[in-house]
Simulated scan of single mutants.
Amino acid sequence: MRANTLNLSKAEIVARSLAQMDSDLPVHDWAPRQKLALTCRILFDGGHDSGLSGQITCRADVPDTYYTQPLGCGFDEVTPANLLLVDHDLRTLDGQGIPNPANRFHTWIYRARPEVNCIIHTHPFNVSALSMLEVPLDVSHMDVCPLYDDCAFLEKWPGVPVGNEEGEIISTAIGDKRAILLAHHGMLVTGRTVEEACILALLMERAARLQLAAMQAGTIKAIPPALAREAHDWTSTPKRNAVTFGYYARRALRNHPDTLA
């Protein structure tokens, strides 16, 4: 059989591949509450468990409201049924319990970034260890290029993020980027979709683990910016995020059959 694509340019092959992924790859249509519960289990299995630290939120249909887990509920206990609906003053509108007071800085980011529909803040081990060094995330591997030039850095810890001051500081520091490393604290990622935020959160912990391991072996070498941006864009598409999320969701459902109960 004669091959017909061997003379195509890389740009043409990329365009064809993206079009084929968009048209041919199926994705599961979970409801927002289900996606949040699945993300919590995915992140729990991905090393983001830190007791009751960390929050996940997603905009709801009513303006200036979002879903989040109740304070006292670990990521491995979140289900669609126990999520709360809260307003920007963190008043519970639906559900049993109260949100984590640290959700206040989510409100500040949502107000500054209308395109953001999901925020994840966690204290995973490797990100937390890297944050203690007061150095930015160093993206120097193909797998974590979705974070290339897309991860801000807050090098001074402003204290526990329960006040409006911390909300202003963090929302300003992240700017228009999708992620931020918080010194002496942890990480935060944003997404236009829950799927996007989930994948970025997993990648950020992997990037920190890679960086810490590489620093022990020698000096990290930078990758060419043009190629890094190419990889960033290749892997940062809604369909790619949805398909990747589907894989992690299936794995989470095998590990946690009660997730969507």
Rank of each mutant, 00 (worst) to 15 (best):
M1H: 14
A3Y: 13
T5P: 02
L6F: 14
L8R: 06
S9T: 02
K10I: 13
A11L: 03
E12Y: 00
S17G: 08
S17E: 12
L18M: 12
L18Y: 03
M21Q: 11
S23V: 14
D24E: 13
D24F: 02
D24H: 10
P26S: 00
V27C: 01
H28V: 10
P32H: 10
Q34P: 00
K35M: 02
T39R: 03
T39A: 09
L43S: 04
F44Q: 04
D49P: 12
D49Y: 15
S50D: 15
S50V: 07
S50T: 07
S53F: 08
S53H: 02
T57H: 01
C58P: 10
R59E: 03
R59C: 07
D61W: 15
D61M: 14
P63S: 14
D64M: 05
P70S: 04
P70L: 04
L85S: 06
L85R: 11
V86Y: 02
H88Y: 09
D89P: 02
D89E: 13
L90E: 03
T92C: 02
L93V: 10
G95Q: 10
G97C: 01
H106E: 01
T107Q: 04
I109V: 14
A112E: 05
A112F: 07
A112Y: 09
N117V: 13
H121V: 07
H123N: 04
H123S: 11
H123R: 11
F125L: 11
F125W: 10
N126Q: 07
V127P: 01
V127T: 12
S131H: 08
M132I: 11
E134H: 04
E134D: 07
V135W: 12
V139W: 02
V139P: 00
S140L: 04
S140Y: 08
D143Y: 14
D143F: 14
L147H: 10
L147A: 10
D150W: 10
L154V: 08
L154Q: 07
V160A: 06
E165L: 04
E168C: 00
I170H: 09
S171R: 06
T172G: 01
I174S: 01
G175V: 06
R178V: 01
A179P: 03
I180E: 09
L181P: 06
L181E: 10
L182S: 13
L182A: 09
V189E: 00
V194Y: 03
E195W: 15
E195A: 07
E196C: 05
C198P: 12
L200W: 01
L200F: 06
L200Q: 05
L203Q: 10
E205L: 02
E205D: 03
R209I: 09
R209N: 05
Q211D: 07
L212I: 09
T219V: 14
T219G: 08
P225I: 13
P225D: 11
A228P: 10
D233S: 09
W234Y: 13
T235Q: 15
S236Y: 06
K239E: 12
R240S: 13
R240F: 12
N241M: 04
T244C: 05
T244I: 11
G246D: 12
Y247H: 14
Y248P: 00
Y248I: 05
A249G: 09
D258L: 09
A261S: 14
A261N: 15
